[in-house]
C-alpha cells in the first residue's frame, strides 16, 4: 500500500482551490430544507462534507440521464458521433463509499466484453475522491452489502479520505491520486497511529448501523421463492409503478434509445435516456409484454438487485445506499421484502 497523508481541515479550501484549477470539481452542496446535491463548486465555502445522502447518486456525471449518441443526415449521408466528454475533466469530491462501489458495479456492465464508448470516455475523464462515512445514514445498510461504511475497493478510484475532528486522512490509490496530493505543501505524512485511529473510526461506524440484511444464501433463497405473496401484496397496495426506485438507484444501467427527426425530414438524432424495468412498456416486445403486471416488475427489481446480478456480474446489484426506499413515495423497502421471504423460509 502506498503512503497515507494528513490534510488539516483548515487547509481543505486550499486543496479544493488547487483542484478546481485543473478540474470541474463536483461536490456535495446543501440545498433547501436539508437536501444535498452534487454540483460544480469553485471553492470549499459551499461544500458540506457531513452530508448524509443525495437523491441522485454521482453516477449521473458518468452516465447521464439523457445523452446524445449520434446524428445522421439523409441528404449528405453524414454520420457524426456525439462527443460524450465534458469541456474539462471532472472530479467528484467526497463521494461516499457506497456510490463509489456503485460506479465499480456499473464498470462491470459498461466496460466488460462490449465496451460502451460513451461511458468509457466519461469514466476516463472522471477523477474520484472518496470520503468514508463515520456514521451510518438513516436507511443505509452498506455494511451488510460489503460496500461501506469504509471503502473496500482497492482500485478504480483515486483518493480515499477519512474525516477526523481536525483533519482528513488521505490515501491515494492511483497515480492520478498521488498527483493530486504530491507537491502540495499542506499535506503531511500520516503515522501508524493515525491509521490505527482510522481503524477505530471504522469499527465505530460499523456499530452505528440500525439496518441490516443477511445476504448469506440470499440469491438462492429468492430464486426458490419467486411466487412469494409479498410481491403481489406490495405491488397491489403500495407500488405506484412510478419508477422512482430505479431512477435513483446508483447501479441501474438500463437505457432506451430514441430517434428524433427534425422537420426537414433529413437529420435524425439518436439519444439514450435512463429506462426502468418498473415501467409498463419496458418489457413490451413484438407480440406482447412479458412483464405486464406490476407484481412481475417488482419481483424483477428485487431479484435482480439481490439475486440474479450475482450470477450475471459476480457481485450484488444492491450497494445498500437505501435510496430506493427513501425516494419511494410509499416507502417500499426491498430489505423488508427479502426479510419476509427469509422469515417464511425459516419457519417452514
Amino acid at each position: 500500500m502506498s503512503e497515507a497523508y494528513l490534510l488539516s481541515r483548515k487547509r481543505l479550501p486550499d486543496w479544493i482551490k488547487s483542484l478546481a484549477e485543473i478540474y470541474t470539481v463536483l461536490g456535495p452542496v446543501p440545498l433547501r430544507r436539508g437536501q444535498t446535491v452534487f454540483e460544480p463548486i469553485a471553492s470549499a465555502d459551499l461544500l458540506n462534507p457531513n452530508y448524509c445522502s443525495t437523491m441522485l447518486s454521482p453516477r449521473l456525471f458518468i452516465y447521464p440521464g439523457c445523452q446524445k449518441l449520434f446524428t445522421v443526415n439523409r441528404s449528405t449521408g453524414q454520420y457524426v458521433t456525439a462527443d460524450p466528454r465534458t469541456q474539462r475533466p471532472q472530479l467528484i469530491f467526497a463521494i461516499h463509499p457506497c456510490d463509489m462501489h456503485a460506479i465499480s458495479v456499473l464498470d462491470r456492465t459498461f466496460l466488460a466484453k462490449y465496451e460502451d464508448y460513451y461511458y468509457r470516455k466519461r469514466r476516463d475523464d472522471t477523477v474520484t475522491i472518496v470520503l468514508n462515512c463515520n456514521k451510518a445514514c438513516d436507511s443505509g445498510f452498506c455494511d451488510s452489502m460489503g460496500t461501506g461504511p469504509f471503502l473496500r475497493l482497492k482500485q478504480g478510484f483515486d483518493v480515499a479520505l477519512t474525516a477526523r475532528e481536525k483533519d482528513f486522512i488521505a490515501e491515494p490509490a492511483s497515480e492520478n491520486g498521488e498527483r493530486l496530493i504530491g507537491g502540495r505543501d499542506f499535506f503531511e505524512r500520516a503515522t501508524a497511529a493515525d491509521l490505527g485511529e482510522k481503524e477505530e473510526i471504522e469499527q465505530r461506524a460499523k456499530r452505528s448501523f440500525t439496518k441490516h440484511l443477511d445476504t448469506d444464501g440470499l440469491p438462492q433463497l429468492l430464486m426458490r421463492h419467486l411466487d412469494h405473496t409479498v410481491y403481489r401484496r406490495t405491488a397491489d397496495s403500495r407500488c405506484l409503478g412510478c419508477t422512482n426506485c430505479t431512477m435513483v438507484c446508483p447501479t441501474c444501467y438500463c437505457y432506451n434509445v430514441q430517434d428524433r427527426t427534425g422537420y426537414d425530414l433529413m437529420t435524425t438524432t439518436r439519444q439514450r435516456y435512463w429506462d426502468s424495468c418498473q415501467e409498463l412498456h419496458f418489457a413490451q416486445v413484438h407480440g406482447g409484454n412479458f412483464r405486464s403486471s406490476r407484481e412481475a416488475r417488482m419481483r424483477q427489481f428485487v431479484t435482480h438487485k439481490l439475486a440474479t446480478w450475482v450470477e450475471q456480474y459476480g457481485c450484488f446489484g444492491c450497494i445498500g445506499c437505501g435510496r430506493c426506499m427513501t425516494w419511494c413515495p410509499t416507502g417500499i423497502d426491498l430489505t423488508e421484502m427479502a426479510k419476509e421471504i427469509q422469515r417464511d423460509a425459516a419457519e417452514k
Partner: peptide, 17 residues
C-alpha cells in the same frame, strides 16, 4: 411514463418525499 421520470432526469428533488 410517469412525471417522476422527468423529475429525476431534471434532478428535481422529489416534492412528495
Amino acid at each position: 411514463c410517469s412525471v417522476c421520470v422527468e423529475c429525476k432526469l431534471a434532478a428535481n428533488i422529489c416534492v412528495l418525499v
